[in-house]
Each structure stands twice: as structure tokens, then as C-alpha cells.
Amino acid sequence: MAQSVVKEFTKGLWAEIPPFRLVLGLCPILAVTKSVENAIGMGLASAFVFVFSNLLVSMLRNIIPSKVRIAGYIIIIATFVTVVELVMQAYTYPLFLKLGIFIPLIVVNCIALGRAEAFACKNPPLASVADGLGMGVGYTLSLCVVGALRESLGNGTLFGHQVFGPDFQPFAFMLEAPGAFVCLGLVLCIMNLVGKK
């Protein structure tokens, strides 16, 4: 039992890490990764939603009629997104402003709905929580990797600290919209290379 829970958790960290292995939820990873700080904030907010929506979907899996299940899942996810939105507005207001409309848009993050449909509606609550947590942590890690690459190359900083010394010429392309696409494409390529071995 404990073993399978651990397995559900760890698969989100490497074997099915979103959005590299599971190509879902690309929008936030392109939009909020200008700095590592934003990336972590977005990752944690999404992780919270994944865990709790998985938990509730799994607890209600025998009650929700299968014909209206998608609408049901969306309401559950939207409820937790509203919770996150209000909590962030109250306690981390600067981050809330920076992430802007991407917080309400966690609702349409395909990972949340995808996990509810593919995993939580067929499995008991504990395994579903482990799955949601794994996906959430994996997603946060991916956001951080892309965020760190873009912030360090584009701005020469990490968490606002200089990393390459004062002589470093910032590669501003990385911070702009096109840089986000190219950076994510190349990270995906590296993941494919490593995965092939």
C-alpha cells in the first residue's frame, strides 16, 4: 500500500513529469517563468489545486454521474482556484499582481482536469493525493528549471542576486516572448536526449 503511494508520487517527478513528458499545461510555463520567484509561486499555487481537486474528485468518484463528470470536475477545480486566488490576494499581494490572470487560468490548466479524468476518478483518495502531489511538485520543478534558465541568462540574476559577476552581458532575448518558446523547446530536447539513454 505504502509502496504504491510512493510510486504514484515519484512518477510525477520524472517518468511523467509535466509538462515535459506529459505535454499539458504549457501556457503558464511560458508566461510566468521570467523569474524563479514567479515560477515557484505559480508552481505552488498549481500544486495546491492539483492535490485538493484530486482528493475531492476521488472522494466523490462514486457519486458524480459519469455523464456530467467533466462539468463536476471543472466546478471542483474552479472552487480551489478561487481559494488560491483569495489567499494569494490576501497574503502575497505583489506576487498576485505579477501572475495576473494566470492564477484564475489554473482552472483551464489541462493537468488538473487531465489528472482528475485519468487518475483520480478511478483510484482511492490516498493514491490520488500522492498523484496530485507528485504532479504538483514535478510541475513546480519544471517551472523552476525554465525560470532559472531564463532569469540567469536574460537578466544575469537568480532570485534577484547577480550570478555571473558584473561583466556579464544580459541576453535579453530570453526574457521576451520568443525566448520563452525557444527555451522551452530546447529544454524539451534535452529531456528527450536524457530520456533515450
Binding site: 505535454v23 521576451e176 516572448a177 520568443p178 525566448g179 520563452a180 518558446f181 525557444v182 522551452l184 523547446g185 530546447l186 524539451l188 530536447c189 534535452i190 528527450n192 536526449l193 533515450k196
Partner: peptide, 22 residues
Amino acid sequence: PKPLQDTSIGLVTAGMIAICFF
């Protein structure tokens, strides 16, 4: 190249189009 295939090259291409729109 093999590792770049599919989504990866798609994203890089999207980046190139984004430069044009930029």
C-alpha cells in the same frame, strides 16, 4: 534531429514566429 522532433521543434518554430510578431 531525433531529440528535437515533434513538440520540441514545434516550440522552437513558434519562437521564430513570435520573433516576427515581435
